[in-house]
Design a protein around this nucleic acid. Structure first.
Length: 810
RNA sequence: GCGCGGAUGGUGGAAUUGGUAGACACGAGAGACUUAAAAUCUCUUGGCCUCACGGUCGUGCGGGUUCAAUUCCCGCUCUGCGCACCA
């Protein structure tokens, strides 16, 4: 009898699949398509980790399951290669990032193949390949044409010693992470994508997405749409007007101050000579503070009076104008009306600086404990609106303001435009040429790609520009519009740009004429299952944004790129904590395979650990258990081959187990419940072990084992393929139809009806399937044990749930 | 603070529509095979009472609805995650 030896059979079948190109697919309108993809990996030097192994075990189970159903399955792979880790490594070792990246990709690819993931490698893409980023640049140019990419001055972190821009996370407590010097904010021109223009469109589609609720909620909160009003406050001693945004126009009569963000245009200007110095000092210092510091909840409110006053358009009262950094410049108008009586933040501010607190909503008696009442109620101190309820009066007050020209309805979003430019070398160059006469001009399509030039030193030079800026022969070019000397944009794109359309490129990856052929895209897309475990908002919102734009451009038939988002948990170390190199508790999936467990056991184990959306802790005994399970199937198949005979054995029982399992596994995989699918295969195996003592009847057992082989294939494809061939099939497993169950074989002639007395289980009746209600009730009441609990009391009620139970109430 | 989840044996988890709680696996215990061990196979395994039949308690805590609640409702506790001065 042959022993189960994964390290022998797995490479063998991997080679066969590769030789026969079994996973390469083309458009085939005669068959339903299924597109499944994991989030493409960033190929780091460390190689694949358990998270990758888990993600792609899910992807591959789905891909194989659908392929076995005869569907045309697209399961592609690519590499997200631009970004800081590769660039920093390049700076440190003075090796071109492209070279390091190529090595890492080769390593990852080898590992994916060793996992047996059924990828169509003919579609492999790499975001740092000019043939790919050519089209990323093309998209940029299209967005620029449509006014969806624009340049704007914006404040950035600047280290005056290193003379470089720093990302938010490179600033630690107001100091540069490298040299420790105090950083400052510097205004620089940056590129943005106008995602805010799609705020409503992106929000509107959320309810229809088949995505986990928590991701949908996170996206909706991130977009943060709120309906409110803009209200104008005229200044007392100047012609200037301050416009505020509020979601509570009903509290307007309680606005006792105006507070400006330090960055507000008028904040310096409104300072009267008496307060000028204090205001300037305050604004200078607060602009230096990190957003994280400014948004710190526990920090005490600060602020400075400007000396100016404005008029509350509702009450006509004179209210002071202050500058305070608790007001955010990026949201609404960067100015708020402070209503201390009904807003916690304004209350703190007013309390600290002695501003008047005017209640305009009657606090319900039930809410005496609340210091600041922000609920609904009846208006007081609100002139003609007194006695009306807050929720009713909002629109009315706005309409009243609108009549006077001092207010209007307004929708605000938390979401800001997407800052896309990076002053870094290792990214897709922004395809823009700056012409002295024509300003920024998009590089024409026939001149794409703008290829990243070779440089000697990848580090930023210290002038706030990427290393590209020092390549004179690259920077100096001519204007596409007028032909006069002009300069290339030296910023590169955020890596998220590259990953915002790769799911589309997979469908038509070798197209040299255009980004994609709509006919091909519309066949494969949208993605049916997108599998991943991070990126709640950023990537998953950007992909949606770009796809919406593509639809509007007529480049696709669909708005939403991802039908179902399969969001999985993390695999933690054995002690339940996160795996980390420094703790030395990292499990390397390739080690597990090479220890002799094999890829099949690894994959099956990862899917058996629990529901995919849960975090799980690696258990080295758990994988041993799975190996044992696979081995039991193997042994069963070997014993069958050694001793099957022509006779009628336990045929009916074998068939029943077989068909029950087919139904359960099919059901469970369809609802992505892999752990229970595997457990039912375990039950099936245990059942067959009990039945085998009566011998293997040739035909029925062959059929039962063939089903086993096919049902286990999504999890343990190599063993499945080997046993399939041992059982005499000349077709690969994926070319054979998924087994179909027969309900009549599952059905039993008897049913078990449980009997409850006062809600407690007292007996189980095994009765013929066709026993009628009256007979069953009779049997239940007559049951000796049941009777002893009823005693001489009269049953008040007897409830019968067909085929399930009799519930007796006494 | 706001939002979204989660809590079931020694452990991971199952119970899909309110209907036998603990499937399956790990661990533990016992037995078979073996000179022995490993491997493998079989059985037992939520707590308490009972030789046993069986009883009783039990799904984070407190209430409620129901013939019946892990499942639905109300109020808490703990915990994970996301957002966080968004007016």
């Amino acid at each position: 009898m042959k022993r189960y030896n994964p390290s022998e059979i797995e490479p063998k079948w991997q080679a066969t699949w590769e030789e026969q190109h079994v996973n390469e697919v083309t458009v085939d309108p005669s068959r339903p398509k299924v597109y499944v993809s994991g989030m493409f990996p960033y190929p780091s030097g460390a190689g694949m980790h358990t998270g990758h192994a888990f993600s792609y075990s899910i992807v591959d189970a789905l891909a194989r399951f659908h392929r076995q159903h005869g569907r045309n399955v697209l399961n592609p792979m690519g590499w997200d290669t631009f970004g800081l880790p590769a660039e920093n490594y390049a700076i440190k070792t003075n090796t071109a990032p492209a070279i390091v990246t190529a090595e890492n990709i080769a390593n990852f690819k080898k590992q994916f193949k060793r996992m047996g993931v059924s990828i169509d490698w003919s579609r492999e893409i790499n975001t740092s390949d000019p043939e790919y980023y050519r089209w990323t640049q093309w998209v940029f140019a299209k967005l620029f044409e449509r006014g969806l990419a624009y340049q704007k001055e914006s404040l950035q972190w600047w280290c005056p010693v290193d003379k470089t821009v720093l990302a938010n996370e490179q600033v630690e407590g107001g100091h540069c992470w490298r040299c420790g010097s105090l950083v400052e904010k510097k205004s620089m021109k940056q590129w943005f994508f106008k995602i805010t223009e799609y705020a409503d469109a992106l929000l509107d589609e959320i309810p229809d997405l088949d995505w986990p609720q928590k991701i949908k909620t996170a996206q909706a909160n991130w977009i943060g749409r709120s309906l409110g009003a803009e209200v104008e406050f005229k200044l007392v001693d100047s012609k200037d007007i301050i416009t505020v945004f509020t979601t509570r126009p009903d509290t307007l009569f309680g606005a006792t101050a105006i507070v400006l963000a330090p960055e507000h245009q008028l904040s310096r200007q409104l300072a009267t000579s008496e307060f000028k110095e204090a205001i300037d000092e305050y604004i200078d210092s607060s602009i230096k503070k990190s957003e994280i510091e400014r948004m710190n909840d526990t920090r005490e409110k600060t602020g400075v009076f400007t000396g100016s006053y404005a008029i509350n358009p509702a009450s006509g009262e004179k209210v002071p104008v202050w500058v305070a950094d608790y007001v955010l410049s990026g949201y609404g108008t960067g100015a708020v009306m402070a209503v201390p009586a009904h807003d916690e933040r304004d209350f703190e501010f007013a309390e600290k600086f002695g501003l008047p607190i005017v209640e305009v909503i009657e606090k319900p008696d039930t809410d005496v404990d609340t210091r600041v009442y922000h609920g609904e109620g009846l208006l007081v101190n609100s002139g003609r609106f007194d006695g009306k309820s807050t929720s009713d009066v909002r629109e009315e007050i706005v309409a009243w303001l609108e009549q006077q020209g001092t207010g209007r309805p307004k929708v605000s979003y938390k979401m800001r435009d997407w800052l896309i430019s990076r002053q870094r070398y290792w990214g897709a160059p922004i395809p823009i040429i700056h012409c002295p006469d024509h300003g920024p001009v998009a590089v024409p399509e026939d001149q794409l790609p703008v290829v990243l030039p070779d440089v000697k030193d990848f580090a930023p030079k210290g002038d706030g520009k990427s290393a590209l800026a020092s390549v004179d022969e690259w920077v100096n070019t001519t204007c596409p519009t007028c032909g006069k000397p002009a300069k290339r944009e030296t910023d590169t794109m955020d890596g998220y740009a590259c990953s915002s359309w790769y799911l589309l490129r997979y469908a038509d990856p070798r197209n040299a004429e255009r980004a994609w052929d709509p006919a091909i895209i519309n066949y494969w897309e949208p993605v049916d299952y997108y599998v991943g475990g991070d990126h709640a908002v950023a990537h998953l919102l950007y992909v949606r944004f770009w796809t919406h734009v593509f639809k509007d451009m007529g480049l696709t038939d669909f708005k939403e790129p991802i039908k179902k988002l399969v969001y999985h948990g993390y695999i933690n170390a054995e002690d339940g904590t996160k795996m980390s190199k420094s703790k030395g508790n990292v499990i390397d999936p390739l080690d597990v395979i090479e220890q002799g467990y094999g890829a099949d056991a690894l994959r099956t184990y990862l899917l058996f650990m629990g529901p995919i959306e849960f975090d799980a802790a690696w258990d080295s005994r758990g994988i041993a258990g799975i190996y044992r399970f696979l081995n039991r199937i193997w042994v069963l198949a070997q014993e069958y081959q050694d001793s099957a005979k022509d006779f009628d054995g336990n045929d009916l029982a074998v068939k029943r187990a077989q068909h029950k399992t087919i139904r359960k596994v099919t059901d469970d995989i369809n609802r992505l419940s892999f752990n229970t699918a595997i457990s039912s295969l375990m039950e099936y195996t245990n059942e067959l072990y009990k039945l085998k003592v009566d011998g293997f009847s040739k035909v029925v057992w062959h059929d039962a084992l063939q089903s086993m082989v096919q049902l286990i294939a999504p999890f343990a494809p190599h063993m499945s393929e080997e046993l399939n061939s041992q059982l005499g099939s000349t077709e690969l497993v994926q070319n054979q139809p998924w087994p179909i169950w027969d309900d009549s074989l599952i059905a039993e002639q008897t049913m078990t009806v449980i009997v409850q007395v006062n809600g407690k289980l007292r007996a189980k009746l095994v009765v013929a399937k066709d026993t009628d209600e009256a007979q069953i009730k009779q049997l239940a009441l007559e049951d000796e044990h049941v009777a002893s609990f009823i005693g001489d009391k009269k049953p008040a009620k007897v409830i019968y749930v067909p085929g399930r139970l009799v519930s007796i109430v006494v």
